[in-house]
Write a protein that binds this DNA or RNA. Structure first.
Length: 125
RNA sequence: AAAGUGGACUGGGUGAUUGCGUGCAGCUUCGGCUGUGCGAGGAAAGUCCGGGCUCCACAGGGCAGGACGCUGGCUAACGACCAGUGGGGGGAACCCCAGGACAGUGCCACAGAAAAAAACCGCCCUAAACGCAGAAGACCGUGAGCAAGAUACGCAGCAGAUACGCAGCACUAUUUGUACCCAGGUGUGCUUUUCGGAGCCACCACAUGUCGCAAUUUCGCUAAUAUGCAUUUUGACUGAAUACAGCACACACAGACGCAGGGCAAGGGUGCAAAGGUGGUGUAAGAGACCACCGGCAAUUGGGUGACCAAUUGGCCAGGCAAACCCCGUCCGGAGCAAGGCAAACAGAGAUAACGGGCUGCCCGCCCAGGUCUCGGGUAUGCUGCUAGAGGUGGUCGGUAACGGCCAUCCCAGAGGGAUAAUCACCCACUGCCUUCGGGCAGGGACAGAACCCGGCUUAUAGGUCCACUUUUAUU
RNA sequence: GGGAACAAAGCUCAAAGGAAUGAGCACCUGUGUCCGAAACAGGCGGUUACAGGUUCAAAUCCUGUUGUUCCCA
């Protein structure tokens, strides 16, 4: 889990991102990026009811997404809002796949730089 | 051991690394940091009932509306639960159902004469019209016989055509075609449950029948034995009704039969359902008209807090549906933690004038002067409510039980885009394959995620554990 | 969090408890045409969302599930 100051909290922030953000797609995820007005670096995760009817499964996906993002976030640039939106295929994806996709999307968005910090705290094999 | 019935419990474990929310304590540069405790469920779900709590008149009256419905308990309350009563299902353990259809209205398709005071076929002619018609023996008179046939006749069947001034109708007439024409009865029997139909099986019953390397006694025939004949029992097989044209007989002017008028509701057929059932007596024919038993109803007596049960007596009793409207009894004011409270922010302009708004669908009643509408602007912010409770666990007492009293002990989630996790290793349970029966390899972890809190109900749920009981089989 | 409505042929909808139910469009076949459209004639297509109950009988009445849509804030 991430500390609270790294998370998107307001409903307004979500709707603002969906309107003004830049969208990138992969098989499992969609990443929406927008520049932040200050030095904050916030992230949010959306899993709609379309993915699964069961609340248990949606919660599980969100937890895995957060856990996967946690590995990379120290290396993400400051001053951006990020929103990850789950796609249908994520239901059966493995944790490794999710990690790779997140890393790729962050690179594509140009907000990821490996020199920001040392190695991630837990860059598992 | 197998099959089953009812109930209770459990809902993967251990460790490592990296993380999250929150209570408390300490430190702090007031941003946080450190330590320590806690961190999803039996259904947290559906929101189907019932409460607490909050606000609205501390909650009012009436109507409307809704829910419940055998009896007695239990409870804060309930549609939950416990104990009982009656009915139904099951071989049993056990399970399911539950006010009122003589307060009223309505419905019961098709079929059927009739779906609630019925009469189509049928049975009858006692009484009442001393009815009509009726001698060419009758448009098929009635009865018991004979006997060939296989539709000529009959017919409570079905379908069609034609006809009565015209049009329409038909429990009309005439005519044509066609199907069928049965020796049965009984059964907690079988064919998956119910109803109906059909078939099968078993048993019983019928006959001037037929057959037999079958048995047998009395009598008779034969010289005698066997055989045969006859008789009896038994077995096997076979057959089948009624009506009708035809023939003959009897009855019928002391009035048959028919029409009309009446009596009856036994039988037939229709249907989910047909006016208490079965058997007798009785009668012109019949009928609870009368009798016995059974079912139902009413009264009396006795038992039970009561639903109800038992006994006796009486008269002889007219369907179903209220998850149709309804009647009776009991209960229900409305809205909901996004309730509500405190703080912050916004509180500009115009119009309207007691019309209005608030506690509801309506009426009353009560309350409100920061009333309502339009345009424009702002907000969806922070804190609180927020978790110690009809609480859990253990003991004891009362009670058949649900449940209640008392004592001891424990503190057990509190988020707000919403924490309770991610990855890995080993073990455990399960599934599949291989196996040298030691094991190996692969898959892979039921349903499901708190949002103010409780009591129930309902629905989802892999696997596992335990208790009580029923039936069958085996052993002692 | 609270409240309400709906579900029937491929689609849009009828059907007062009484033949297991229709209509329009679509689809298929035929007629017709050089070919197609229109027209005409005929046909196919339904577990009335699912499960249980009440009733002689349920698309309809009652209860519970599932799905969809809408409303309040």
């Amino acid at each position: 889990m991430l500390p609270r100051e790294e998370r998107l909290c307001r409903r307004n922030d979500f709707s603002h991102l969906q309107k003004a953000g830049k969208s990138l797609r992969s098989r499992l995820l969609r990443l929406i990026v927008a520049p932040a007005p200050d030095e904050r670096r916030l992230v949010g995760f959306t899993v709609s009811k379309r993915i699964s009817k069961k609340a248990t499964e949606r919660n599980r996906i969100k937890r895995r997404l957060r856990s996967a993002y946690r590995v990379f976030y120290p290396q993400v640039n400051r001053g951006v809002f990020l929103l990850f939106v789950a796609q249908d295929a994520i239901l059966n994806a493995s944790f490794d796949e999710i990690q790779i996709q997140i890393k790729r999307l962050l690179g594509e968005a140009g907000v990821y730089s490996s020199k920001n910090a040392g190695t991630p705290a837990c860059a598992s094999d």
